[in-house]
Design a protein around this nucleic acid. Structure first.
Lengths: 271, 271
DNA sequence: CGCTACGCCGAACACTGTACGGAGCCCGAA
DNA sequence: TTCGGGCTCCGTACAGTGTTCGGCGTAGCG
């Protein structure tokens, strides 16, 4: 998005909107007079714009290809211009992560008194989180580096809604929090492992099946002393890749956890 | 560890072991003759040495302070010397992660036919993993970036042992794998979130309680629109920090998952 | 003795995040 | 109208990064 400008005008100030030219000589040959008078009507850059473009760049080229200079260039701006809208590269990354989480639908609390319903809602929510992380594998790196992402507004909104779901389901706030942490922990951790593979895959620039075949000798060598892993990798992983069965495996995992939570509650109410 | 050498000998070749001096003039005043003849008896650097020192440096200063030059200096070596033992910085990081995981005790399979026993073993294993990650918070960054860590020998040995535990407990290989993935996913994810806080805390260089108090206004501001989160942060988090109740919360999470796994199996055997 | 192989490293390259100071522009006050 | 302050943008510069390359000194072998 936001393609580089075609004309080679020197890096003078650009307008944020359409260049409304002021002086009148006939256009055609470029000259100091026909060049539209660049006038800054409103700030050319905005934080939202920067964050959106950073997200696009991260998706396209991965996290180690994101530099302030490159990002600036994609916005037709200098690298250091970004610092008037964003304090840090770290702050930028935190903003981008929260921005991405803003795309997730929020779970609704209505009907969650029914144990089957809240479990379904939580499952949907977890699946959404996972798919977002897998679509943007660079996120986990930021998770670990920049602890403040958990204070972002979108993250908090999502958390609040999940808590509401659990409270509606009949859990106390503390229990609701623990349940939510369990689900989110499982989701982030699983997605982390998967995203690591996706990043490596992306870096190799090959199709998943081809890449796996290339990697296979190393895997077999690595699992030489470990029969169970060997069996798993030589049969199961192939199946996963071919059938895309990771999704259902993840869903089963979430179900195990939510069932466990429900069972614990039942046991405590009985005891 | 491996303190910088005290003497200011120019960067000539060092020996890996004690400098066995060859020529004989009386020691005392430094001179070209009493300076021990540096002779390379065996390679001065080894991959293990490099990995160990990198781990120490990471623990001391965090991941963004690890540079090849600094690491080389701590080993009394040039930065580029490391590249004869290690292909990449990425490869180095993968090696370090696996090295750290090598310190974990392996779960034993004996007695795991008893459902109570395997759950206990798995819990111990998960707690070990979590505590290792919390002691080395930089690990999660590597998890996300370098997908190949999951092929390291120590990681694989641990996985194999967990699979053995689950098979002994009566699970088929595929089910055992899914169960293990669930546990490990939960562990990594939870530890990831916690480690992010620890990293930020470490970066601030303050005591946890002081830091939290400083952060509190921002937190209250951020949770203004979210009553549940607000209540949670203003009461619960304080309690967690003061009582260190995160450990037990994690253990409860693992128990929920293992119970869920056991229940699922029982249900399937019945059905 | 010479020769090759290996481990080490200084210099160099391309690139990074970001501090600083200045330049252009807007708006409101005098 | 002129002036001044404030906001945005950016060229330059600095200290550092990972990694490549060529060369050097030593060790072991013939």
């Amino acid at each position: 998005m936001t393609a580089k400008s075609e004309d080679d005008t020197p890096p003078e100030h650009r307008t944020g909107a359409q260049p409304e030219h002021r002086t009148d000589p006939p256009p055609g040959i470029p000259s100091p007079w026909n060049r539209p008078q660049k006038r800054r009507t409103q700030p050319a850059l905005s934080r939202d714009q920067i964050v959106a473009e950073a997200s696009a760049l991260l998706d396209a080229e991965g996290i180690e290809s994101l530099s302030m200079r490159k990002l600036g260039a994609r916005l037709n701006a200098g690298a250091t211009s970004l610092y008037t809208h964003v304090a840090n590269k770290d702050e930028l990354l935190a903003l981008v992560v929260d921005h991405v989480f803003g795309q997730l639908p929020l779970p609704a609390a209505e009907g969650c008194e029914d144990p089957a319903v809240w479990r379904e809602r939580v499952l949907e929510c977890a699946e959404g989180m996972r798919s977002v992380i897998l679509r943007h594998p660079w996120m986990i790196t930021v998770f670990g580096d920049v602890g403040v992402v958990y204070l972002g507004p979108n993250w908090m909104r999502l958390s609040e809604h999940m808590l509401t779901v659990m409270e509606t389901a009949g859990f106390g706030l503390v229990d609701a929090n623990e349940a939510m942490s369990a689900i989110m922990g499982y989701t982030i951790g699983t997605a982390c492992v998967e995203a690591a593979w996706l990043s490596a895959l992306h870096k190799s620039g090959q199709d998943e099946r081809v890449w796996l075949n290339q990697l296979m000798p190393a895997v077999i060598e690595a699992t030489r002393d470990y029969p169970r892993l060997n069996r798993l990798y030589t049969t199961e992983v192939q199946r996963e890749v071919n059938e895309g069965s990771r999704d259902s495996s993840f869903a089963r995992g979430v179900k195990v956890i939510t069932d466990g939570i429900e069972a614990h509650r039942a046991a405590r109410q009985r005891g």
